[in-house]
Amino acid sequence: MSISKLDINILYEFFDLIIPSNEKMPPASEIITEEEFLKLISTTDKYDEGLSNVVSFIRKEPTARVMGGPMVVNEKQRADILILMESIIPDDFSTLIETVYLLYYSKSEIHEKINWDTREDSEENKIDSFDPAILKNISKKTPFWKKV
């Protein structure tokens, strides 16, 4: 893993622009802990290069440099950096998006808010057994496989 703690702090500044809050849903930074982010990126090297490039892009971005670093740019400037990043290094940007989306949508707080219930004992999750009556029409179709 080639991402430092400072790098993670920089990335965190952008999380709420990626998934902001609305009247029902919390922003990404409220849901994704630093520990979880570290765990995700330390169990695989899949994200190393992409996230390193993202951090490097942010650090080198002119607005961030002029303003004194990526931690002090305002929200509008951070959004502009993301838009630029998405167009210039789309694959690396996708890596950032994957980490944020995966972590955000893997949390029980979010599952509850979006009504994602996988419990097998939930009455809402029961579906009816196959009913052969549905075959009434298709069964009248003349067999059309080629006899060779």
Binding site: L17, P20, A79, E98, Y101, L102, Y105
Partner: peptide, 27 residues
């Protein structure tokens, strides 16, 4: 698919749903 796969494009032709202010509506 599940919520993360949906966000990452399984319901949108393999393209992640947009980030930013429209994210929750698109999801």
């Amino acid at each position: 698919h599940g919520p993360a796969h949906t966000a990452l494009g399984s319901g949108s032709g393999g393209v992640s749903i947009p980030w930013g202010k429209d994210h929750h509506d698109e999801f």
